[in-house]
Design a protein around this nucleic acid. Sequence first.
RNA 1: GCGAUUGUGGUGAAGUGGUUAACACGUCGGAUUGUGGCUCCGAUAUUCGAGGGUUCGAUUCCCUUCAGUCGCCCCA
Length: 421
Amino acid sequence: MMIMQKPKGTYDVLPRESKKWQYLEDVFRSVCSYYNFKEIRTPIFERTEIFHRSSGEESDIVKKETYTFTDRGKRSMTLRPEGTASTVRAFVENKLYVDSLPQKVYYYGPMFRYERPQAGRYRQFTQFGVEAFGAESPLLDAEVISMAYHIYSILGFDQLVVKVNTLGDQDSRDNYRNALVDYLTPQKEYLCNDCKERIDTNPLRVLDCKIDSFDSPPNMSEYRTEKAQKFFDGMLEYLDALGIPYEVDETLVRGLDYYNHTVFELQATIEGFGSQNTLCGGGRYNGLVKEFGGPDIPGIGFAFGVDRTLLALEAAGIKLSKPEYINCYVATFPETRVEGARLVDALRLSGFITEMSHEEKSLKAQLKQADKMNAEIILILGEEEFNNEEIIVKHQGEQINVKLENIIDYLDSLNLGEINE
RNA sequence: GCGAUUGUGGUGAAGUGGUUAACACGUCGGAUUGUGGCUCCGAUAUUCGAGGGUUCGAUUCCCUUCAGUCGCCCCA
């Protein structure tokens, strides 16, 4: 086996593509600043219980997808599979709730899930996410959805659909859960083994089962409390007002236990795009902060798949990165290499992206290299010119001699870089 | 966890049970002394993912393994 290879399901972001990542990250950060979300950075691993408690012992993430290890102090640690649990933990631990609410934060970084890799799914992947604590208002739900939606608008991507649903409040869920258990119990013996367990642990997920199917399971919306319905309707009203196109999808339930009320996903609708088309998913998690030992403060957030978004943008033919280029290439001769190195350094400190050859080559080879690098201007430091304290400047096919002492001012006057921005 | 499929140089790829593994791109160098593109010339795989087996002989056949890709499940 070849040892020098990356772990399964990971990827390298190579120099030729890192600009795209930086650009996306810039868009996230600027949108966050408009919506007044502040960054929070938490560890990429936590005590295992943090994730088990929040996501639910029976969730797929906890049951088969976590990267869990025992550290040297015999503590069970887990690489974070998602961002909300760590954020809530930090929110509670640092008592951020004593400040005025709502508190709005965002995070950006790697997440880890042990899965079979495929298009748009990796074991280490990157998420950008936001969490807003402390306002139980449908306006906040709409604001968060709008935020996710607008990121795509800014990127110029419109081949997506916003799906929304509500799981209702605790009473709605309890009502529905009871109805579901009553419905399922009589037919328990016909269910698959997983579902037999799920009736006790998490009956909602029985409906998700792809093995068992049901004729007429209870309808979630009938068990929704009036209050929960009103909250959902209010949220939709705001979405309408904000001009966010959406579809209500009653089957949208999502995999984590902590959600209630609003849940939503943004899905890519590009034809032929892989099956991993959920670009962004989120929802409300009232009660989670309390469960982590904080006050009973509501929360809502979303997680945004950065790698998937990059794939979607590529599939849609949207170009994020501009061609690579440099401002100046300094060509030298053996006699002027030392002076050339000093000049290169001076140009760099003046803000010009500058290169020279690191080994002695013919002038022709240096000019070719300058072309490869898309140099905007080429400076040739010839021996004769140097003796006259001058340098040759080639710019857009023209060539003139400039006094060395004036070179920075001259380059400033050319406004280099502007055509590339 | 299950299923399908693939694995030849930096990249895209052709190929065959048996002397030197096409071709294209890329990269580098050169085409008379210090001028870029194009063109032309030259250099770029002791080796066909790894390990084992069959065979006189395997990159080509078989097994195992690793990795990639795609799908199921689930999700970002």
